[in-house]
Amino acid sequence: MAGPKTDYGKRYHYLSEFPADVKEPHAIGPDDTVYRYLCASRKIGSIIGRGGEIVKQLRLETHAKIRISENVPGCEERVVIIYSSSEETNSCGDNDDLVSPAHDALFKVHDRIIAEEAVGDDFVEIQLVTVRMLVHSDQIGCVIGKGGQVVQNIRNETRAQIRILSNDHLPNCCIEL
């Protein structure tokens, strides 16, 4: 049940077209594992690939659903939404740790973006990688923890620099999410 065609030749689904008791196909469920990754628009091709080949392969490999937002005028980033059922598991890494398909896909998407940076200049060693993730306001407490203890433990264990920004710092591509 597709909506009207846009100038870009893409069809959009509108929730109003679905009866109240029918869920939108591939909708994010309340128990799903969901990641929202901000990707620079100039690097999005490393996730999509020619004709969508790479993103299709990532979906097949991980069994996760991956959506890439449309370009928003004036915004240099796009949101990549990766999600799957929390009940499913994939093997991950050399020791066969079990993770959700969304978790597996998140790391594969990230690896593709980082790999593109490494190919860009053979003489520059990558020392700093910046990742921007969106966390829903209902879940940010789980990341911060009481008195900031969870985020501090993550910083100590990973030696990563973690900054949590307010909604005032959201890029335009995130406003509608």
Rank of each mutant, 00 (worst) to 15 (best):
S100P: 11
V72Q: 03
E125I: 10
N71F: 11
K108I: 09
C173M: 06
G93R: 04
K146L: 01
A102M: 03
V131M: 09
E70T: 08
R36G: 01
M133S: 07
N71C: 09
D94C: 10
V150P: 04
Q139D: 12
P4Q: 10
R42I: 11
G29W: 00
H136P: 00
D122Y: 15
L177H: 06
M1L: 14
E76T: 06
Q149D: 02
L165E: 05
D96H: 11
E116C: 08
D138N: 07
A115S: 13
D121P: 00
L60Q: 13
G45F: 10
E17A: 14
V131G: 05
S46H: 06
H13Y: 12
C142A: 02
C142P: 00
V119I: 15
Y83D: 06
S86W: 10
E24N: 06
S41Y: 02
G9Y: 14
F18H: 07
D21Y: 03
V79H: 04
L165K: 02
P25Q: 06
E61N: 04
F107A: 04
S86V: 04
G9P: 12
E125W: 06
I28Y: 05
E117F: 14
V150F: 03
S46R: 03
F107E: 09
S100D: 14
D122H: 13
E157F: 02
V109Q: 06
G141Q: 02
L128C: 09
C75D: 15
V80I: 15
S137K: 02
S91Q: 14
N172P: 09
H103F: 06
A40S: 11
S41R: 03
G52V: 08
I68G: 01
